[in-house]
Simulated scan of single mutants.
Amino acid sequence: KQARAEEERARAEYAAAAASLEQARLNLEYTRVEAPISGRVRRALVTEGAFANQNEFTHLTTIEQIDPIYVRFSQPASQYSSLRRAVVSGLWKGVPLGEIKVRLLLSNGEEYPHSGRIIFSDMAVGPNTDTIEMRALFPNPDQELLPGAYVRVVFDRAVRDNVFVIPRDAVIRTAQGASVFVVGPEGVLEARPVRADTLNGREWLVSEGLRDGDRVAVSHTMSLRPGMKVRSAAARPQPHAQQ
């Protein structure tokens, strides 16, 4: 009986020692804080030897991910909706949905040499700003971009085929729709219905109704009438006109 009691006492002491060892290992782990991400560590907010409360959150420092780096920005809801509809319908080419490329303009006006891509778009519109929060991911191998800096986000332009850009005053809009005056082979004016749904500055983007080689009257349109014979001349290009 005495030998069995000593054996049980020895087992109990061994279990207590094992528990103490495990507690010591756990306490040792509390002295090391491993970051879940890699990046650059900012200044320490807690000095060495200070007590960190186990029951409350203690802010030790902040780790900033530098390469790659995230850029957060807001896009007007109207522009985002128009772009999405155009991409889905196939009207715009060169901008695959979900892989929209973006560029950055730095605060000094120079363009950042690396392009990024959209990786997140919020599903809700901000009620106070009417914008959609978005996030892009950019490579930052030279650490030129720093957290907290302000930059301008530029979307790469898409290519839209079979679209004609004409001056705003050349389009006549009535209750029946939009139309332009086209000069025929004999110099006779013809009223041609067109589809002009997008106004880009001072030019209309005409997607239907015009063909290559058509000559459109761009001046004095309010005094023109179908069937009139005119003499056409090349219009002066405007500095802000886009092809």
Results as ranks from 00 to 15, higher is better:
Arg4Asp: 15
Ala5Glu: 15
Glu8Gln: 13
Arg11His: 11
Ala12Leu: 13
Tyr14Arg: 15
Tyr14Phe: 11
Ala19Ser: 14
Glu22Asn: 10
Arg25Phe: 03
Leu28Tyr: 09
Glu29Pro: 05
Glu29Gly: 11
Thr31Glu: 06
Thr31Met: 08
Val33Arg: 11
Val41Gln: 06
Val41Ala: 13
Arg42Asn: 10
Arg42Ala: 12
Arg43Ala: 05
Val46Asp: 08
Glu48Asn: 07
Gly49Lys: 12
Ala50Val: 05
Phe51Gln: 15
Asn53Val: 07
Gln54Lys: 12
Leu60Val: 14
Leu60Pro: 02
Thr62Gln: 11
Glu64Asn: 11
Glu64Ser: 15
Leu83Arg: 14
Arg85Leu: 10
Trp92Leu: 14
Lys93Asp: 10
Pro96Asp: 14
Gly98Gln: 07
Lys101Val: 11
Val102Asn: 00
Leu105Trp: 01
His114Trp: 14
Gly116Trp: 01
Ile119Arg: 10
Phe120Ala: 11
Asp122Phe: 03
Met123Thr: 09
Ala124Gly: 03
Glu133Cys: 03
Ala136Asn: 13
Leu137Asn: 04
Pro139Asn: 06
Pro139Glu: 08
Asp142Tyr: 09
Gly148Thr: 11
Phe155Thr: 11
Asp169Tyr: 00
Ile172Arg: 14
Thr174Asp: 12
Ala175Asn: 10
Gly177Tyr: 00
Ala178Gly: 01
Ser179Phe: 00
Val183Cys: 05
Val183His: 00
Leu189Arg: 04
Pro193Trp: 02
Asp197Tyr: 00
Asn200Trp: 00
Gly201Gln: 06
Arg202Phe: 01
Trp204Ala: 00
Leu205Cys: 01
Val206Pro: 01
Val206Trp: 00
Gly213Thr: 12
Ser219Pro: 00
Pro226Ala: 14
Val230Gln: 06
Arg236Cys: 00
Gln238Asp: 09
